[in-house]
Each structure stands twice: as structure tokens, then as C-alpha cells.
């Protein structure tokens, strides 16, 4: 199976080198870094280290970055595409478990979940995550524990799905869309690290906006 790891990066000059090294050392899959028009020298870092990267001329957000990765994966005949954060929070050694799950035909989408086997800790973030889980359960009857995880592996049919429908985002509401289309989703236990450098994208206002978008999308639109 041809596997592509999509690493979106926005202002991740300090993290990107380690992330790519982690991927290349721990897996034999292809990868592509998507530099979403970073303001820092992410592009130069990629160029200097001779990474396989695409550099977008205009900043367009995570959804667009994943989307161009999907285009690349589809055009180059990959069977599985994995979204993998460029900020060093994800651990590449778990990727083969995700791929294995898809290879065995157990799932069409494999989510790298922090809570597949472990309990959720209690924090603001996790309250949000639980709320989204509840909405997904209400809508589809399926229990997904770590819905907001950014580590997901998609089969080729779903890559096509992403290209055909530009409203799909690499977010939990798309899981609902896929579940309703009878695709199989499975969670695989992974560990994640705290980010070392740089700012997280989510601030309080963005978080509220994100929650509103997700809840409305899950309940009414997907």
C-alpha cells in the first residue's frame, strides 16, 4: 500500500525539522510538508533540509492545506493519506498501527486516538471534545472518543470524497458525514506530546467559534 503522510505547517520553523525526522526515522512512508505561506522561515528550513514540500503562495488555513495534500495524494496514486500535525505533538511510531487497521480492512478511516483505551482527563478542552462526541453519538449512534485528534488516516475512496466535496474539513463533522455514508471509522490508541515551540492556533474566541461550527455542522448539516 502506498501511504502518504500530509504534514501541514504554518509558522512551524522550530518544530518542522524534528517532525519530519520523526516521520522518516520511524516509518518508510512518503511524506509531504504543506507550508501554508508561513510568516517565519518554515520554507527555508524545508528547502535547506531538502524536504519534500509544497509551498502555498497565500495563507488559507488548515482545511486548504490538508486539501492540497489530498490532491497530491490522489494525483500520485496513493492508497492511504494521513494527516499529521507539523507542531511535533504527534508521534510517528504509531502511524503504522493506523495503516495496519486500514490494510486489514477494519476501517476506512483510522483515528489516532488518545482515549481509545485510556480515560479522558478533565479539562476545558476535554469538555469540548466530550460535547462533540455526544453530538456525534446523537446523530450517528457511534461512539468516537477522541474526535478532535488531528492524526487521521484516510483510504483512497475518502481522499476522492474530500476532492469532490470542498465543504469537507479535516474536522469531526466530516466523520459524521462519512459515518452517514456508511464508511467504517476506527480509533487506534496513540500517545501525544505537548507542543514545545510556538503558539497553539486555538484561543478562547476561536475555540467558541470552533465549537459552534462543529455542533451546528454535526447536528444540522452533515
Amino acid at each position: 500500500m502506498k501511504v502518504l503522510i500530509i504534514i501541514p505547517a504554518y509558522n512551524e520553523a522550530l518544530n518542522i525539522k524534528k517532525t519530519v525526522k520523526d516521520v522518516t526515522n520511524n516509518t518508510k512512508y512518503d511524506y509531504i510538508v504543506i507550508n501554508d505561506c508561513s510568516k517565519d522561515n518554515t520554507k527555508e528550513v524545508c528547502e535547506k533540509n531538502n524536504f519534500n514540500y509544497i509551498s502555498l503562495p497565500v495563507n488559507y488555513g488548515l482545511t486548504s492545506a490538508i486539501n492540497i495534500g489530498m490532491k497530491y495524494a490522489y494525483n500520485n496514486g496513493y492508497d492511504v493519506a494521513i494527516q499529521f500535525d507539523g507542531d511535533g505533538q504527534h508521534d510517528a511510531k504509531y502511524l503504522k498501527n493506523l495503516v495496519k487497521t486500514i490494510e486489514n480492512g477494519q476501517a476506512d478511516v483510522a483515528i489516532g486516538s488518545r482515549f481509545a483505551e485510556q480515560r479522558k482527563p478533565f479539562s476545558m478542552r476535554m469538555i469540548g471534545s466530550t460535547l462533540i462526541s455526544m453530538c456525534i453519538f446523537l446523530r450517528t449512534g457511534k461512539r468516537l472518543k477522541d474526535t478532535t485528534s488531528g492524526m487521521r488516516a484516510y483510504k483512497r475512496e475518502i481522499i476522492k470524497e474530500f476532492l469532490d466535496n470542498p465543504t469537507l474539513t479535516p474536522e469531526p463533522d466530516t466523520m459524521v458525514y462519512l459515518l452517514r455514508k456508511k464508511y467504517k471509522i476506527k480509533e487506534v490508541q496513540v500517545e501525544m506530546r505537548e507542543r514545545e515551540f510556538g503558539e497553539s492556533y486555538l484561543n478562547p474566541i476561536k475555540s467558541i467559534e470552533y465549537m459552534c461550527n462543529m455542533i451546528f455542522s454535526i447536528i444540522f448539516m452533515r
Binding site: I54, L56, K71
Partner: peptide, 12 residues
């Protein structure tokens, strides 16, 4: 967005 992607892929 599509144009953005097109330019990026051409460049690549």
C-alpha cells in the same frame, strides 16, 4: 483556494 493550490502544485 483552487487557484492557490494550482499555483503551488505547478511550482512544486
Amino acid at each position: 483556494k483552487d487557484l492557490n493550490h494550482y499555483i503551488a502544485l505547478e511550482e512544486y
